[in-house]
Amino acid sequence: MAEQIPFVDYLVLGDDPHLVVNECSACGARFFDRRNACGSCSGTEFEKTRVATRGELRSFTIVAFAAPGVPVPFVAGIVDCDGTSVRSNIVNVEPDAEHVKLGMPVRLTTLVVGSDSEGVEAVNFAYEPAA
């Protein structure tokens, strides 16, 4: 099996793929990016915290027209994972308004983005319907 690496720093692969955030130790605000300080309280201490892998689709769009090289159509959405908002693609669903529904339950899944010259696979996350 090819070596796999996560597409972004905040994705943890393995038997139990999940996202991690930098959670502010002082106020609990959660961030996916590398931090200098907290955007909510300016605190500088963070803990790596696991994000729930199940959530609810809080908003979405179906992108039909994108920058060159980006395959369309695809569903982009905001998933509410137990109070933490996550930006993601929504996959394994027909990309139309009959099938993608606001409020629908979704769960984290992973998919291979591609391989580099060394044969290493980059693995990304997305959410899929959990009904």
């Binding site: 690496i5 597409f7 972004v8 720093d9 905040y10 996916f32 990016d33 590398r34 769009t61 992108v63 994108a66 920058a67 980006v70 395959p71 369309v72 695809f74 982009a76 959405g77 905001i78 930006r87 993601s88 693609n89 983005v113 591609g114 980059a122 990304n124 996350f125």
Partner: peptide, 13 residues
């Protein structure tokens, strides 16, 4: 975010 490639279209839009 330590992404290995552009995220537009891969992590939302």
């Amino acid at each position: 975010y330590g992404a290995v490639a552009p995220v537009d279209g891969r992590i939302g839009t």
